[in-house]
């Protein structure tokens, strides 16, 4: 399963970049086999049976929310930049996460960076340090909830 998925992914990326011709398919397959052998031997990662389902969830639940939030973030930036006096209340806030895997944490940190008014600075074990333009909420729990709430719920169902 792991070999097969890795091979298909590599071949697909190669073909998308090079174009779908017979000689490209042959060359791409050879390169993908070599890279698959190297990657599965030296890089530690796991792909299980549920991978296709999780990938579909990622595609159809996470991506639309992500794009919506990205547009919101840009409108937020536009509003701040174009206003006469820039509204600011910046601070660095700790956000706790329940997501365990490295890939899940990476995706969460990236999502936080691209959502309105936040920028993840550092990830350490189960804590993400986030710089927020406008710190809302009274205590630490409210900070975490304001910043990571939606994405953590979605990503928790996709990554473990």
């Amino acid at each position: 399963m792991k070999y097969f998925t890795t091979f298909i992914t590599l071949l697909l990326v190669y073909l998308l970049l090079a174009g779908f011709q017979v000689n490209e398919v042959i060359l791409g397959s050879v390169l993908s086999v070599i890279l698959t052998v190297i990657l599965t031997k030296y890089v530690d990662y796991k792909i299980d049976i549920l991978f296709p389902i999780r990938f579909l969830k990622f595609l159809f639940i996470y991506i639309p929310v992500f794009i919506y939030k990205l547009v919101l973030a840009n409108l937020d930036v536009a509003r701040r930049v174009l206003s006469f006096k820039i509204p600011l209340n910046p601070g660095i806030v700790k956000v706790k996460t329940d997501i365990k895997g490295d890939l899940g944490k990476l995706t969460l940190a990236n999502s936080i960076t691209l959502t309105p008014g936040t920028l993840s600075i550092d990830v350490e074990d189960d804590v993400i340090y986030v710089h927020a333009i406008d710190v809302k909420g009274k205590n630490k729990k409210e900070h975490s909830k304001n910043i990571a709430g939606t994405f953590e719920k979605i990503l928790g169902g996709i990554f473990k």
Partner: peptide
Amino acid sequence: LLGGLGVLRMPDTFNRIQAGTKATTL
């Protein structure tokens, strides 16, 4: 354009990075 304007107008480093990243990504 908005991203560039944000980098110019924001008062400190972190806020500049924020404006730059979001605007350039979209």
